[in-house]
Design a protein around this nucleic acid. Structure first.
Lengths: 248, 248
DNA sequence: TCGAAGCCTTGACCCAGATCAAAATGCGAA
DNA sequence: TTCGCATTTTGATCTGGGTCAAGGCTTCGA
């Protein structure tokens, strides 16, 4: 839990870092102006729970900077992460008014929120928003299905390799860099969060990360910074068909 | 593999059994007429693979009757089901032209297909379709997330109980019956398909089904027909918060 | 400088579910 | 009615990853 101050926020849409990837990606400037009237920014500190499952939700929004997780918890405490929210990802569901999952800030985070009611009204009148949201939801569904294969059929080692590959890929997409040569990524998750992502225990995560390091698949710099010498080798360890389609 | 002839198809939209739940649910009659011009029916026999992952797709469509599965397979043959397609579910993704998963008919099946290109064009002009598709996709995403909890954190026994509960719930929703008192459902899946759904082996599925039967949670009639005496008891075995929300 | 609180690693042991093997059951076809 | 095949059950054994238990490493605050 870092003790930095919550990042202070507001931006203009014009220089918003997620302008071209978020729900508003397709909006024209007049549409942005309308959105502007119902939007506001909120900041949260690492470790804070933004939303509790079952809470009433009167807003939806986008992650602007930072990372959050979507998790489900059983009565006895077993927890499973069901979504990893990176910048530009959307939070909340139009047409539903209580949250289905816990949302927890993993790092300090800034969100661009829209009041739900007016946002829903606007969706009806502004196809650009609904279109983009559909596209994003379909992408998330694909990601969820990939994730199901990981959870259901992969070994612990393959799971770890898959997670690193997924994060590296998203990272590369965000920073518009290619996938050749060694690349270095931040793993913004604790061992426990990785375990909750992968359906493992934190001890197993620790052991398998060490194993991948020992075998030269990855190199560590501190606990959280990972260097991947050969991305195809990593994909191989992940059990993925090696061609490695690089989705935008 | 039943050896019945493929069910022969065509319907009028007016008396289509999925009229009020499929992508076209919100369409007005003039919109249905437009859809009618680009639609056609296709039938498949149980066991047939409708679509191979990677195939070029020139249509999208809805399951009218029967059941199909969406599966992913790794190079070494491990397979994970990532979708269970019941009547009214949508197949294919507008804006993508190759299939991401294998689609296999579990029973004989009838699909209502739309040529992809005209369907995509129509989506732009007919918000009712896009709206409904968004809603359905969000529902599927929720189902996928529930499923992730099952795959990642539940025991074999809980997984089986969860699967039966999910099918019973969908069945009840489709037939508009309530959830009290004993109810009987068809499990339209082989033990192997259940294993692929739950990330287990078919032997484990068989053992756990027997165990639930021995413990009186379920009763079997033949191999595929299940009677649930007390639905809350089943939810309990599934590890679900027992209130049991009955989504429409 | 020290202590406390979070994280992370490592070791020893155990068990749920996988694997391997065989036998039962059920069903359509001849 | 029996044969052949797919599916399912059951048994014996093995093992990957869970569980329990110590320590180590950082960071921060006093």
């Amino acid at each position: 839990m870092l003790k930095e101050p919550a990042p202070s926020a507001p931006h203009e849409c014009a220089d918003c870092p997620i302008r071209h990837r978020a729900v508003c990606a397709r909006c024209e400037s007049d549409e942005l102006e309308l959105l502007d009237q119902i939007k506001y920014y909120r900041s949260f500190e690492a470790g804070q729970t933004l939303i509790w499952s079952g809470d009433h939700m009167d807003f939806v929004g986008s992650v602007v900077t930072g990372i959050a997780t979507l998790t489900q918890t059983m009565e006895d405490g077993r927890t499973q992460m069901v979504g990893l929210l990176l910048p530009s990802d959307f939070v909340g569901r139009p047409g539903r008014d209580s949250a289905a999952y816990d949302v927890v800030a993993t790092t300090n985070i800034v969100m661009c929120c829209f009041r739900k009611k007016p946002f829903e009204e606007m969706m009806v009148r502004t196809p650009h928003i609904a279109q983009r949201l559909l596209e994003m939801t379909l992408d998330e569904l694909d990601a969820a299905r990939e994730w199901m294969l990981v959870l259901g059929r992969k070994t612990a080692r393959e799971k770890i390799a898959s997670l690193i590959a997924i994060i590296a890929r998203r990272d590369a997409a965000l920073n518009m860099v290619g996938m050749r040569g060694p690349l270095t990524v931040d793993l913004p998750l604790t061992r426990e969060a990785m375990a909750d992502y992968l359906g493992l225990t934190l001890e197993t995560v620790s052991r398998q990360v060490s194993a991948l390091k020992k075998d030269g698949v990855i190199a560590l710099e501190g606990k959280r910074r990972v260097t991947i010498a050969d991305f195809n080798r990593l994909l191989d360890e992940a059990g993925d068909d090696s061609d490695g389609g690089l989705l935008a």
